[in-house]
Design a protein around this nucleic acid. Structure first.
Lengths: 340, 340
DNA sequence: AACTACATTTCAAACGTTTGAAATAATTGC
DNA sequence: GCAATTATTTCAAACGTTTGAAATGTAGTT
């Protein structure tokens, strides 16, 4: 049975023969309302399935209790796992979350931003697209007093924004150190696209681990790839083409690249294949299905990154931190060694 | 520079020394408004970064142009891919999407439903949790005239609801037929949790393919597992424990189960391991990294399932289809044969 | 009975938009 | 030059809620 008259406060008030404000206050448990009245109102509201209209409340309250998230896509487990952290904490604090994918396209990112602005989100969490150079569409939010927290992918050159990042330097340092401790001297580094901001941090983690442990650096042991397969293969070929600098270990920027590397080395029957120890960022369950799994993974703790982002955002929303007092939060990575 | 006075129609009106209604109509391109006036208003709106308040519009229009989606989780590629289809088509038609995860928990699903109801979504797309038996929280929507489309996971016993489903019978039939055509007589079937509604459809696809091709059926070739690893292993052990019914091929309910199966068979060095041909539902990019990949995958076309769901939902919202005229849409699977 | 004190309820305005009806201004025809 | 049209703008109510101020009701005190 479809109910035609929507159940509003007014409707309840008429049924109960009292004023709208009494009904409202009764439902919101105002101390000035008589207990018996409250009970009557709440019962009626329940029986008639009264559902408060959020639009009306938002309009009155001038806030939406909605957090917007913009991210490149939902196919990357890093992002979906990070959402888990955001959602969990947001829900606990009475906020809802609208997720919008940019598909790594600036135009789509702008659209998403505008729609979230119209929806008057109380705050925004964003991982920018590969192509975002101009930030007008995101600066709008701060101009309207709506806090923005950049997470993971962020405008690295810009210090005037809130950021929550994986400590990708530390992660890469740790991985490299781990390999050094296992006796490797020729550790290859396969980096990601240079335009992604933390590419350099990871490289620095690698370099510093070498330096701190007196392992000589060679540029022959470093190559970069975007996420394109062909590109990755040629980068690996490059890495393994210098006899005097033949890698015995590999640190890779991200999981799919790492898998491509492992697969390639296996396919060419590299003589020391089973000696080569690999580590990459990311730690999907799929690893357990590989026949030659990486020796360890750099777990980026996406849930924790998400949780830190929403925590910071809520502090900004609640003005516990001034919006101009720009914060930078680093979330450590954890080296997960895979069992045999 | 943070702007304190929010830019509203009223604010624009004062600046321009005209009435709020003129401003509103100018922005909405009413034919009765003078062209020059429109231009002035639109310029001012642009310059002052006027952003219409969606809550106010929703309240007035009595619709939100928001579609709600409830699904078990975002870690499953089927769901994230399906969202792509929904989002794409929704955006094209001026709708936004709020995604909510139930984490396969009924309590959380109820919470999600209530929050979407308060948000006055114009329609709901839902894949129910494993434990959803009672539908009161979802029936609310239809009672308020808000259409609901169940997709993938749905209340199978209930005919009075709109459904969009993968044609899982056809997918499984096709896969089984493919294996029969390759000469297999002993094809094992590894099914999923019995409480998921399409478990039976898949099994029927398997059975019917056997029947239609005069391949004798044996219950020794059938086993079930929930998604638990141990459970899966013991199911496989079971399948391969009958000498007179030793499988030479396998159809698996879903990808992780399939991978577990392949891994196990490899680990025990099954004598005919490289002869055993496997197929499973799902078609992730991981497959390319496996050393013993499945011979084919049953591609469920999640994007298409999502797109069909949102298309149907929009037709219901626009009353092109009566809400009581319950629809069932089936989306065919496609067998993707791997490798050379 | 009159007053105070307190408990409870109601009034009325506000949030930002839309839109049909009414008002006003500009143009045309004669 | 004035009525009749037509073009353009404004008025005012409505959407569903919240909330401080005002009004009303009740009980207690003298």
């Amino acid at each position: 049975m479809t109910n035609n008259t929507p159940v509003t406060l007014k409707f309840l008030a008429e049924k109960l023969k009292m004023s709208v404000s009494t009904v409202s206050k009764a439902l919101n448990n105002y101390p000035t309302i008589n207990e018996y009245t409250k009970k009557r109102v709440q019962e009626m509201a329940r029986d008639l399935h009264f559902t408060p209209n959020k639009s009306a409340i938002n309009l009155k309250e001038k806030k939406s209790r909605i957090i917007g998230i913009i991210l490149p896509n939902l196919l990357d487990h890093f992002f979906t796992r990070s959402i888990y952290g955001v959602e969990q904490f947001a829900t606990q604090n009475g906020y809802n979350v609208i997720i919008s994918q940019s598909h790594d396209d600036l135009e789509k990112e702008i659209q998403s931003a505008n729609m979230l602005l119209r929806s008057r989100v109380d705050g925004l969490i964003v991982a920018i697209s590969k192509n975002t150079q101009d930030f007008a569409h995101l600066d709008q939010f701060e101009n309207m007093g709506i806090p923005v927290v950049y997470y993971t992918r962020n405008p690295s050159f810009n210090l005037s924004c809130h950021k929550v990042l994986g400590n990708t330097f530390q992660g890469c340092y740790q991985a490299t150190k781990f390999l050094i401790d296992r006796g490797h001297k020729k550790i290859a580094y396969l980096g990601g696209p240079k335009m992604i901001n933390f590419t350099h941090d990871r490289f620095n983690g690698y370099i510093n681990a070498l330096k701190d442990n007196q392992v000589p650096f060679s540029s022959e042991l470093v190559a970069y790839t975007d996420f394109d397969k062909e590109n990755t293969i040629s980068a690996i070929q490059n890495l393994f083409s210098h006899p005097e600098n033949m890698p015995t270990a590999l640190v890779a920027f991200k999981e799919p690249i790492l898998f491509d590397a492992i697969k390639y080395l296996r396919s060419i029957n590299h003589p020391n294949f089973n000696k080569i120890e690999c580590i990459g960022f990311g730690n999907t369950s799929f690893i357990s299905y590989l026949d030659s799994p990486p020796i360890a993974s750099i777990e980026e703790n996406p849930e924790s990154v998400g949780e830190n982002a929403i925590k910071l955002l809520l502090q900004l929303i609640n003005k516990e931190i001034d919006i101009q007092n720009y914060q930078k939060v680093m979330v450590d990575c954890k080296l997960v060694v895979h069992g045999q």
